[in-house]
């Protein structure tokens, strides 16, 4: 059975002579968190705005659970919840009023428990302009969830948030996923994408240049794991021996740094070498290649893998 919640086929969008999105296709499956990644101006927001029915595509097809966003906007409204990158509410609208008004337009009872979940219970009577950026974002998410949509679209949801607000939002996203809600997350925060998404599409100059899970994408890269070692006597600094599967090593502050294609044997060999030379380990760090590095690799090559 087809589990696609979102289907985009050969989607194109231009602004005058500028091609913002150029013939892209992707699908988002039920219950997954799908990341749309790319640098500023890559076409992420344009793609989302067409999915949300805010803009008209110039070519291709888009469907959300079989609904065409442009042809059936009223059906779309109850299917999706959106946290826009740039959106606002009237300055004088209180938190409670916004929930009541938006719920009423969606034809549902206001879910006041959402305010509690978002930590806005105390702010019910507070006007929008008196909320902090984090509180405004959380309110925006509460409103996006007010009608229990099947698909949530989040455009740069953590931009401008402090660490604890980011963590809260990430927890919320995981909770929604566990309840079977599908999420699309547009971000240029690679750490966030790596942590939160099941699959991603990397957009560059309006084209999709890579798709897959963060793990698949990073595995397709140079595949080098970074190993940083610090020891009491720093014997590795002058080590002429080479360890298995490593590039020539470098030194950064008190660390000797190796890049390995097979980190297990490399780490074992390093530890054996330290033991046989009576040096003791202070710190050992093994870092898998990150999505960010892979992203920079792809975008640095102009989208060529």
């Amino acid at each position: 059975m087809d589990q696609s919640v979102v289907t985009v086929k050969n989607f194109t969008k231009t602004y005058g002579d500028f091609v913002a999105v150029d013939d892209i296709s992707f699908e988002v499956q039920h219950g997954e968190i799908f990341g749309l990644l790319g640098p500023n101006g890559a076409g992420k927001t344009t793609t989302l705005e067409c999915l949300e029915g805010l803009r008209q595509p110039d070519g291709g097809e888009m469907q959300i659970t079989g609904v065409d966003p442009q042809r059936e906007p009223s059906k779309l409204r109850n299917l999706i919840g959106v946290q826009l990158q740039t959106s606002g509410l009237p300055d004088n609208m209180t938190v409670e009023e916004s929930l009541n008004i938006f719920s009423a337009y969606h034809g549902v009872q206001p879910r006041h428990e959402l305010l509690t979940r978002m930590g806005l219970e105390e702010k019910r009577k507070t006007q929008y302009h008196q909320l902090s950026t984090g509180q405004q974002r959380r309110l925006s998410l509460a409103l996006a969830l007010s009608h229990d949509p099947r698909l949530i679209i989040l455009d740069e949801p953590t931009a401008g948030l402090d660490v604890s607000s980011r963590t809260e939002l990430h927890n919320m996203m995981q909770e929604l996923k566990s309840q079977g809600t599908t999420l699309i997350l547009a971000t240029h925060d690679m750490a966030e994408a790596e942590k939160m998404t099941d699959r991603v599409a990397i957009l560059l100059s309006g084209k999709i240049v890579a798709t897959g899970s963060p793990r698949e994408l990073t595995a397709k890269g140079s595949g080098m794991t970074k190993i940083s070692v610090s020891t009491e006597d720093s014997i590795l600094h002058n080590n002429e021996n080479t360890f298995p599967a490593v590039t020539p090593h470098g030194i950064k502050e008190e660390y000797s740094i190796y890049f390995s294609t097979d980190p297990g044997p490399t780490v074992s060999a390093i530890l054996n070498h330290l033991a046989s030379n009576n040096d003791s380990l202070i710190d050992l760090r093994v870092e898998r290649p990150s999505l960010e590095e892979r992203f920079l690799e792809i975008t640095g090559n102009g989208g060529t893998e």
Binding site: L84, T86, G88, P90, Y105
Partner: peptide, 20 residues
């Protein structure tokens, strides 16, 4: 001011019609 600050975009995606 409401249009320029993106309030209408919020309204639209939440199903508030232009007439309202």
């Amino acid at each position: 001011e409401a249009r320029e600050s993106g309030i209408y975009r919020s309204y639209k995606i939440n199903g508030i019609p232009a007439v309202s």
